[in-house]
Every structure is written in C-alpha cells, then in structure tokens.
C-alpha cells in the first residue's frame, strides 16, 4: 500500500477521473498539440516542417504588429484604469454617500446591456454627426473623427470602462468590507489618518482581489473586440485594428499556420503576464503574513 490508498481505491479513482481526463485530452491537450504542429508546418494539408519560419513571417507582418501594438496599448490602459478607477469608486462608496445602493446598481447596469445595443448607442454618440461632435461644436470645438484617428482608441477604452467598471467596483467594495475592523481600530488608536490607513492597512488586504480584477480586466479587455468589430467591421482604421481582427481574418483566409503561430505568441504573452501577476500576489501575500 502506497500513499495510504489501496490498489482498488486507486483503480476506482482513476475510473471516476477517466471521463474528465478523456475530455481534457480531447478538448485541450490534443487541440493544443495540433496548434503547435500547425505553427511549424507550411500548410495544413501535406505541409512540410518549416521550423520557426511561420513565427518569423508573423513578426514581419505589418497587420500582426499593428494589431499586437493596439491590443497591448488597450490592455495596459484598460487594466490600469480599471483597477485605479474601480478602487477609487469603491472607496468612495464605502463612505456614507447618499443613494449608495442605487449607485452600485447603476454601475452594474451596463454589463447587462447586449453588445449590439451598446454598439448602436455608441454609433449614435460618436458618429461624425453624432451627439458628442454636436456637443463639441456647441462649445466651439472642431468635430473629431472618432473612427479614423487615434481618438478611436479612446472611444473603445471609454466603452470598455463604462461596460465593466461596475463589476470591479463591486468586487473591491466587498473586499473592503472584509478588512478586519480591529485592524482599522488599532490604526486609529495609533493616530493613522485615512490615507495612511488605506495604504498600510486596507490595501495589503485587497491584494488577492486586485489580482483577480487585473486578470478579469485583462480578459475583458481582450473581449472588447466584439464591440469594435460591430462598430467598424473586419478592416477598421489602423488604430482600431486589434489582434482578434488579425486572428479572425486569418481564420477566414485559412492561413492556419500563421494563425496558430499568432495564437502561440498570444498564449506566451498572456502566460507570462499571468505568471508575473501571481508572482507579485505571492510576494505581497508573504509580506502580509510577515507583518
């Protein structure tokens, strides 16, 4: 007998695990292996092994580089602004604001609006002859071409924040309410002001939630492609062209080796970011435990 389990128990355990292992193998391991394989051959059918040339081709592809740049800029700004704004708003909501409950609900509402409706509203707002430009004209400013200039990135960022901020605020608010009252009381006795109390007592306790929000906002910032696609189609202007445009269009043109190479690059980058975030959380958690 090893590991305290009899052979029969291990056999039964494996038997029960078998369906889920089979599912993992079929739906995750094998497709992943196929992605690696396709990324290393010249074409899907009867292709030859070409080493890393698909990756080299990818890094020389202007569309990929533009998409990667725009996606990276959007992700970094979305994550940073999401965390900062959501944290700030949850701290505000923690205080006795009037109509606090209604505000929380209002923040969450955009999440329940269908993407197509959001896009429709955004089109009306940001069209060349839309409400925003009308407002700009009313105060004597020139209209902005939202869909064909870098202002488009700002428009997408605004849409992302409007849509998702409520959830992050909710997460931070519940995390803030979980900070032990005794610690805050002790900090008060030590004469710590509100700012000091926030940074030295509350913030370390928010670290796990912050990691969660960072991961969530990273994932949601990648998903904003749906709205951008509905707004601008398959081939938008440079500043609105995201990595998912590239992936989508490459899939349609059946360039699977290039598509798989791009997927592996994206996976590597996302994996590295995730590892870095968890490493950071681990460090902060250890500091917290050590006082």
């Amino acid at each position: 007998m090893r590991n305290g389990l009899s052979r029969g128990t291990r056999f039964r355990s494996l038997l029960f695990l078998f369906p889920s292992l089979l599912g993992t193998l079929i739906f995750f391991v094998i497709p992943f292996g196929m992605i690696i394989y396709y990324a290393l051959v010249s074409k899907p059918v009867g292709g030859e092994f070409v080493g890393f040339s698909n990756f080299i081709r990818l890094f020389h592809n202007r569309a990929f580089l533009v998409g990667f740049r725009n996606t990276a800029v959007l992700c970094v700004s979305a994550v940073t602004l999401s965390v900062m704004l959501a944290l700030g708003l949850s701290v505000l909501l923690e205080n006795a604001l009037p109509a606090r409950g209604a505000l929380r609900t209002a923040f969450l509402c955009p999440m329940f609006v269908p993407a197509a409706s959001v896009v429709l509203v955004w089109t009306v707002l940001f069209h060349h002859n839309g409400a925003i430009n009308a407002a700009l004209a009313a105060i004597g400013l020139d209209p902005v071409d939202w869909f064909h200039t870098w202002w488009g990135s700002l428009m997408v960022l605004l849409m992302y924040l409007w849509r998702n901020l409520g959830l992050y605020v909710l997460l931070f608010t519940s995390a803030l309410s979980a900070v032990p009252e005794e610690l805050i009381g002790m900090a008060n006795l030590d004469g710590a002001g509100p700012v000091r109390r926030f940074f030295t007592v509350k913030l370390p306790y928010l670290a796990p939630t912050m990691v969660f929000v960072v991961m969530l906002s990273l994932i949601y910032s990648m998903k904003i492609f749906r709205e951008v696609y509905l707004l601008t189609g398959s081939y938008p202007y440079d500043h609105l062209y995201l990595l998912q445009h590239f992936m989508n269009n490459t899939f349609m043109s059946m360039d699977y080796p290039k598509l798989c190479a791009a997927a592996l690059v994206l996976l590597t980058v996302m994996g590295a970011i995730t590892a870095a975030v968890f490493w950071l959380e681990d460090r902060v958690g250890r500091d917290l435990e050590n006082g």
């Binding site: 081709r57 020389h60 592809n61 202007r62 569309a63 533009v66 081939y235 938008p236 202007y237 440079d238 062209y241 590239f246 269009n249 490459t250 043109s253 360039d255």
Partner: peptide
C-alpha cells in the same frame, strides 16, 4: 485600410 488587408495576406 486596404493596406492592412493586404498586409494580413502576407
């Protein structure tokens, strides 16, 4: 926009 399309094909 068309240049972007052509780049994709490359």
């Amino acid at each position: 926009r068309v240049s972007l399309y052509l780049s994709e094909l490359g």
